[in-house]
Amino acid sequence: MAEAQLCRLQDEFTCSVCLDTLTDPVTILCGHSFCLKCLTDYWDQSQECSCPQCRHTFTTRPELNRNTLLNEVIKKLKKTTLSPPPPQNYASPGYVECDFCTGKKFRAVKSCLTCMASYCQTHLQPHYEGDALKHHKLVDPDRNLKEKLCEKHQKSLEIFCKTDDSCICMMCVVTGHKNHEMVELETEREEKQKQLGATLSDIKRRLEEREKTLKETRRTMEEMKVSGLGRQHLISKRG
Rank of each mutant, 00 (worst) to 15 (best):
A4V: 11
L145T: 05
A198R: 15
D131Y: 04
T57F: 04
R238P: 00
V226T: 15
K192G: 00
S227D: 15
L69T: 13
R205Y: 05
T68G: 02
I168S: 02
A117F: 06
K225P: 01
C38E: 04
K79S: 12
R66H: 03
H56F: 12
K78S: 08
Q125P: 01
L200M: 12
Q195T: 09
Q193D: 10
S50L: 08
C7P: 00
S16L: 06
M224Y: 11
A108M: 01
Q10M: 10
L77Q: 06
K194Q: 14
L133F: 14
H127Y: 01
H233E: 14
E208P: 01
K225Y: 09
V17S: 02
C18N: 06
K215S: 11
W43S: 06
D140G: 11
P126S: 06
S236P: 00
S111V: 02
I235E: 14
F34L: 05
C15N: 05
E147Q: 13
I159Y: 08
E190N: 10
R206T: 13
S227R: 14
C169S: 03
K78Y: 07
I159D: 02
L9Q: 13
L138Q: 04
T27E: 05
K75D: 11
S83I: 06
G31A: 04
C7H: 10
P141V: 03
D44G: 03
R143D: 15
L196S: 14
I235K: 14
H56E: 12
E97Y: 01
D44T: 07
L19W: 02
T60D: 10
L9V: 05
P87I: 07
P62H: 03
F100C: 06
S118H: 08
I159W: 05
L185T: 02
L133H: 07
S33I: 03
D20P: 02
E12H: 10
E158T: 13
K78P: 01
K146P: 00
K134F: 04
G228Q: 09
P141F: 04
L77V: 06
E63S: 14
C54F: 04
I168Y: 08
Q125W: 07
C167S: 14
C115M: 04
L70Y: 03
P141Q: 03
N67T: 03
G228V: 07
C167D: 09
P86Q: 11
L207K: 14
E147R: 08
L133P: 03
T175Y: 07
K237T: 11
N71G: 15
L69I: 13
F106H: 10
M171D: 15
V73T: 12
E147V: 00
C115A: 09
H180V: 01
C172Q: 04
V109Q: 11
Q232S: 08
A117C: 04
T163L: 05
L185M: 14
T57W: 01
R107M: 12
T68Y: 14
K110P: 04
T40Y: 03
S118V: 02
E209L: 06
D142N: 15
A198C: 11
V17R: 05
G130S: 15
G228F: 10
E158K: 11
R210Q: 13
G103P: 05
S227C: 12
L19Q: 09
V109T: 09
H135L: 13
S236H: 10
H32K: 02
Q121A: 15
H135M: 09
V226K: 13
L200T: 10
E188F: 14
N89Q: 10
C161L: 08
Y119P: 01
L77F: 00
R66C: 13
